[in-house]
Design a protein around this nucleic acid. Structure first.
Length: 848
RNA sequence: GCGGACGUGGCGAAACCGGUAGACGCAGCAGACUUAAAAUCUGUUUCCCAUCGGGAGUGCGGGUUCGAUUCCCGCCGUCCGCACCA
């Protein structure tokens, strides 16, 4: 008996698959009518190193791809690189390397690691989004959307680092300061390119209903993100002497029923009226400046202290001109949502209530809860947002909330002050980035014609290689010659756009490009019609909203261009959890990597010690593997020690795929043990002889059923547990002929541990390769037991069990149960009131 | 703050439609093999009282039900996303 040697077996089988072109995608003709199946994992950013998260993600996709292949599907399973983005530019600044060289070097390094994983990928379709062949095609469709008016320019706010003179991403703003300079970050307005995703808002909501193989939570998150709300848009008239040109303030509300509870009107700091007032009022200017600084993200804005500044202006209530409300500038009102102005109703909105308490504004309840009375109901520290009847509201009194909303809208519309309107939380997608390492926006600016899309025969607009990163800001903008060009429309002198596209654009259509990555047009319609939509898309849940929503939007936009036939790119979606690990800190507070730590017994104390110093180590929380906390286990070290299959098996085994899995050394050793046990069984089970065992046959069919259901339902951990259990059964079946059972087991584990399966298949004398074996079918009669053990409950408490034939009639089971000696003992002196028999499950005897 | 999830032994978990809670793995304990150790194999392992046996138990508090980890209401805790990270 020989120990399984992954170092010898694994490269051998990878070479065998490669030499046989096993994973080369078949054309529809070659597939000979077999149904297609498109499996895709979210493609990686080429950081240069494979991490355990990749191992988990791509192993899951591989299991699906190999399983579907065994089920007879014609499978497309491609891989590429999401290769544009900030890290390459950061490397250029910090290490003086060129983003292009850095990126392609990383791709080459990662490709080697990917090959080791033994994935069933068709590498002939590989591309990187930074290949001009890819982004040039992207520029083609982008130019089309521009001509169609789906692309436009408008002013938008960016984070500006006044020391580095550069735009900062939100993640580069740390506590309101630039990450490199440490300078206080300012908000600055720039003219930027936008994609009109809001035009598709309703379609994107409606489309969610068709995505029945998406997790409910992701659909819900997208719906909430789009945030369609019905409400009222209307104008409060300014009274007294407002600045010239400002007669009123237009607000949007989803609660027009609470209009009589209004006690102030709040506008955003960058509302035109606020900006006008700031010109002549230094106090307002200072406050607006304060609002402009700091908070880069919505989360920070929403959690920041609610602050306001009274402008001294007043507006009249729309239903009572004599009723005046103060106008305040508030840091929690967003210019991007609705009209950038709201009315505050403190009694029925918590944020408004907090604000009203702070600035001593009236709190007027206008919705009476069902169990409240007008005299007793008070709003104190908590706003009331529940159901009820309207009161304190003149002509709305007594109405339900819904009826009052309708009535308020009708009256406002009749008065010509506004109209009912649908508003989305979703904003148009700002795609401009003032950076070098991205897809150039294919537009030129002509003094005569304005912005003009680059003509198709002049694409791609290629990034120049000769750029420098010694000056702050966008290297494309400083390039001496690159931006000088001629106008495609009038032929006059013109300048290229120097902004590049958000990398989310690159990842919004790559799945369609994979169907024919070498096509002369962005998408080969015939190939896309055959392969799209992606049948199973797999990736991190952190992409639940942005990437997945953008990809759905672009697919719809391209469908309207007739470039693709489907509206929804991903028919099935699976969002997998992260790989986590314990964190360790040394005595001096430094983070320590797992490799720097030992578990041992030191005198009386057991625990973790730093290997180098022998000092004791604090064990922190279990967190996502990250460089900053050093709780990273390098996949290559694991492959080296246990082989790829053990690593693959472990990331699939311990936790359900949608949940986080905690990497542990002992866990991967368990997987390694399994690999060896399978090998040992196969090694010792190849000889004929032994008796045919019905028990083993039944166990085998049960296993096929369980494995198949586990794979279909994305319960890989359960499937793996069944393999382990089957191995235990197999060990105990001494004297039985195990050859058939082993062959079946090997085919079933093949998607999980493909190298081991091939080695075993060969040892068992199977024909061809394990990867080419069809998925075994099970006989439903053999996959269930003939006689079952049924628990007997008395008043819901388990009091015994009986044996009964499967499918036995209720009467028979009832008789066996009541005759049972244990049951009778418990029933002594009691009256049986009812006997509930659930077929093949349980018997519950109710006594009184 | 808003939106979404999750919470079961010492640990990772299973229980798919409301029907035996803890499959499978890890760690632990006991044993076999060994001069010894490692590796491997066998058994055992939710907690409490215990001889048979009984009681409690799925974050906490309530509810529906013959029966609740599963459904409903309220609370607590943890994690993810929040639009220029990918």
């Amino acid at each position: 008996m020989s120990r399984y040697n992954p170092k010898e077996q694994e490269p051998r089988w990878r070479a065998a698959w490669r030499d046989a072109d096993t994973f080369l995608t078949k054309t529809p003709e070659q597939a000979q009518g077999r149904p297609k199946y498109y499996v895709l994992e979210m493609f990686p950013y080429p950081s240069g190193r494979l991490h355990m998260g990749h191992v988990r993600n791509y192993t899951m996709g591989d299991v699906v791809a190999r399983y579907k292949r065994a089920r007879g599907f014609n499978v497309l399973h491609p891989m590429g690189w999401d290769a544009f983005g900030m890290p390459a530019e950061n490397a250029a600044i910090e290490k003086g390397v060129h983003p292009k060289g850095w990126t392609y070097d990383n791709i080459a390094a990662m490709r080697v690691q990917f090959d080791q994983l033994g994935l069933s990928l068709d590498w002939s379709r590989e591309f990187a989004t930074c290949d001009p062949e890819y982004y040039g095609q992207q520029q083609k469709w982008f130019a089309e959307l521009f001509r169609r008016g789906l692309v436009y320019r408008k002013e938008a706010t960016v984070n500006w680092d006044p020391v580095d003179n550069t735009v900062l991403a939100n993640e580069q703003v740390i506590d309101g300061r630039g990450w490199r300079s440490g300078a206080l970050v300012e908000k600055r307005k720039l003219t930027q390119w936008f994609l009109r995703i809001t035009q598709y808002a309703d379609d994107l909501i409606e489309g969610l209903k068709t995505l029945d193989r998406w997790p409910d939570k992701v659909r819900l998150m997208q719906e909430n993100w789009i945030g369609r709300s019905q409400g009222l848009r209307f104008t409060f008239d300014l009274t007294g002497h407002p600045p010239e040109g400002f007669e009123g303030i237009e607000v949007y509300t989803t609660r027009p029923d609470t209009l009589f509870g209004a006690s102030f009107v709040a506008i955003a700091a960058d509302h035109p009226l606020a900006e006008q007032l700031a010109k002549s009022n230094p106090e307002i200017a200072v406050f607006a400046e304060e609002c402009r600084r700091g908070a880069a993200t919505e989360a920070e804005i929403e959690t920041a202290e609610k602050k306001g500044l009274f402008t001294g202006l007043e507006v009249a209530h729309p239903f009572d001109p004599a009723w005046k409300l103060p106008v305040v500038i508030a840091n929690f009102v967003l210019m991007d949502y609705g009209t950038g102005a709201v009315f505050g109703c403190p009694a029925h909105d918590q944020r408004d209530l907090d604000f009203a308490r702070k600035y001593d504004l009236p709190v007027l309840p206008v919705v009476l809860p069902p169990d409240g009375t007008a005299d007793s109901f008070k709003v104190d520290a908590e706003a009331y947002t529940g159901p009820g009847r309207i009161y304190n509201s003149r002509f709305l009194d007594g109405l339900s909330i819904e009826a009052a909303k309708a009535e308020a809208i009708t009256r406002i519309e009749a008065a010509g002050r506004g109209h009912g309107s649908t508003v989305y939380r979703l904003r148009d997608w700002g795609v401009s980035r003032q950076r070098y390492w991205g897809c150039p926006i294919p537009v030129v600016h002509c003094a005569k014609c304005g912005p003009v899309a680059v003509a198709e025969d002049q694409l791609p607009v290629v990034l120049p290689d000769d750029v420098t990163f010694d000056k702050p800001g966008n290297p494309l903008a400083h390039h001496p010659t690159w931006k000088q060009t001629t106008c495609p429309q009038c032929g006059g002198p013109a300048e290229r756009e120097t902004d590049t596209l958000d990398t989310f654009v690159d990842s919004s259509w790559y799945f369609a490009r994979f169907t024919n990555p070498h096509a002369a047009s962005p998408i080969d319609r015939e190939a896309a019609d055959y392969w799209m939509a992606v049948d199973q898309y797999i990736g991190g849940v952190e992409h639940a909203v942005l990437h997945l929503l953008y990809a759905r939007f672009i697919t719809r936009a391209l469908k309207d261009e007739r470039m693709v036939g489907v509206a929804e790119p991903f028919a099935g979606l699976f969002t997998q959890g992260m790989v986590t690990h314990e964190t360790f800190k040394g005595a001096d507070g430094r983070w320590l990597a797992p490799a720097e730590v030992d578990y041992r017994t030191e005198g009386a104390t057991k625990g973790f010690f730093e290997t180098a110093s022998g000092q004791s180590v604090t064990v922190g929380g279990v967190e996502k593997m990250s460089k900053s906390k050093k709780n990273v286990v390098a996949p290559e070290d694991i492959f080296d020690q246990y082989g790829v299959d053990a690593a693959r098996l472990f990331v699939l085994s311990d936790s359900p795929p949608e949940r986080d899995v905690q990497w542990t050394n002992s866990g991967v050793e368990g997987a390694w043990r399994f690999v060896n046990r399978v090998w040992a069984e196969v090694d010792g089970g190849t000889e004929s002889g032994g008796v045919e065992s019905e028990e083993l046959l039944r166990a085998t069919h049960k296993l096929i059923k369980a494995a198949t259901e586990g794979l279909e339902g994305f319960r890989f951990n359960s499937a793996v547990a069944q393999f382990y259990a089957f191995l235990n059964t197999l060990k105990k079946a001494e004297g039985a002929d195990r050859r058939a059972a082993l062959r079946t087991l090997v085919v079933l584990i093949s998607p999980f541990v493909p190298h081991l399966a091939e080695a075993c298949w060969e040892r068992l004398g199977g024909e061809g390769m394990a990867v080419d074996q069809p998925w075994p079918a099970f006989d439903p009669r053999l996959a269930t037991d003939e006689e079952l053990t049924l628990p007997i409950q008395i008043n819901g408490k388990r009091r015994g069990e009986i044996r009964a034939p499967a499918g036995a009639a209720e009467e028979e089971v009832r008789r066996i149960a009541l005759d049972d000696i244990d049951v009778q003992r418990h029933l002594e002196g009691l009256t049986v009131r009812k006997v509930i028999v659930v077929q093949d499950r349980i018997v519950n005897i109710v006594v009184g």
